[in-house]
């Protein structure tokens, strides 16, 4: 369980997070949605302390994260982001095995773990020896997921993880991750500005605007009436595209 207790954050006098209180149950799949600059990425990064909060407190399983050594905290939390950030001077295997290596896992065990992880993200084993420059965008982000999962984290933080991928790959990878989430019993948080992606992937959608929570509902409830015109607009866009595609297919 991750709990936010009156969390606040300023950047140069601007309020990015404004008194956010929130509880995320273990095993849930939460999407954080909102316009650019709404504070959704900031909120996500407070959990692994890539962003340090100014006020309030965040606890994981009841333990205040501010009191934990930051490197160890981060190694226990998977992190995937749009930039992917595979290290170009390391092979795929070295990238994937990085966190176990930082944690001091012996070399032989790491090799076995790499094979297991590549299999998990549906990549062929012979990719292990390649360097990131030799991968396609989709393959690279699969490696990114494998690296994040390597230390068997309970929590996965994803910041626009599919943002740089083409739509087909994006859809494929989204579905693949959702399956992993269910099988491994992860607690997942994903930041996206794509309302359709949020509605279709997550169990719970939290809409953020100007540093506050505008809505916090399961997808089905949100789609049936959010009560806030800004959210209505976001949902309307997603629904209209779907309707237009249906109409096109039906030849009307």
């Amino acid at each position: 369980m991750i709990s936010f207790d009156h969390v606040g954050k300023h950047y140069a006098g601007r309020r990015v997070l404004d008194d956010v209180s929130l509880t995320i149950e273990r095993g849930s799949f939460v999407a954080l949605v909102g316009a650019s600059g709404a504070g959704k990425t900031t909120l996500l990064k407070t959990i692994n302390r890539l962003v340090e909060i100014d006020t309030g407190a965040i606890a994981i399983e009841g333990r205040d994260i501010a009191a934990q050594p930051v490197a160890e905290l981060r190694r226990r939390i998977g992190y995937v982001f749009q930039g992917i950030g595979l290290f170009p001077h390391m092979s795929v295997a070295e990238n994937v095995a990085l966190v176990p290596r930082l944690q001091g896992m012996p070399r032989e065990e790491r090799a076995a773990r790499v094979a297991e992880l590549l299999d998990l993200v549906a990549l062929p084993a012979d990719l292990a020896a390649r360097h990131p420059a030799q991968l396609s965008g989709g393959q690279a982000q699969r490696v990114g997921f494998a690296r994040a999962l390597a230390a068997r984290p309970a929590i996965m933080l994803m910041d626009e993880p599919f943002g740089a991928l083409d739509p087909v790959t994006r859809d494929e990878l989204g579905a693949a991750y959702r399956a992993l989430h269910d099988v491994m019993g992860l607690t997942s948080l994903i930041v996206t500005h794509d309302m359709a992606e949020a509605l279709l992937l997550a169990d719970r959608v939290i809409v953020i605007g100007e540093g506050r929570i505008l809505a916090d509902q399961p997808p089905r409830a949100l789609i049936h009436g959010a009560g806030d015109p800004r959210i209505e607009a976001m949902i309307a866009v997603a629904r209209r595209s779907a309707a237009r595609l249906d109409a096109l297919a039906a030849g009307r």
């Binding site: 490197a71 981060r74 982001f81 992917i84 950030g85 595979l86 290290f87 966190v99 930082l102």
Partner: peptide, 18 residues
């Protein structure tokens, strides 16, 4: 050095020295 790599290094839990 690409900011994405700095973010990744922080994200995987590297210390300053690492």
């Amino acid at each position: 050095i690409d900011p994405a790599l700095r973010e990744a290094a922080d994200g995987v839990g590297m210390t300053r020295r690492q």
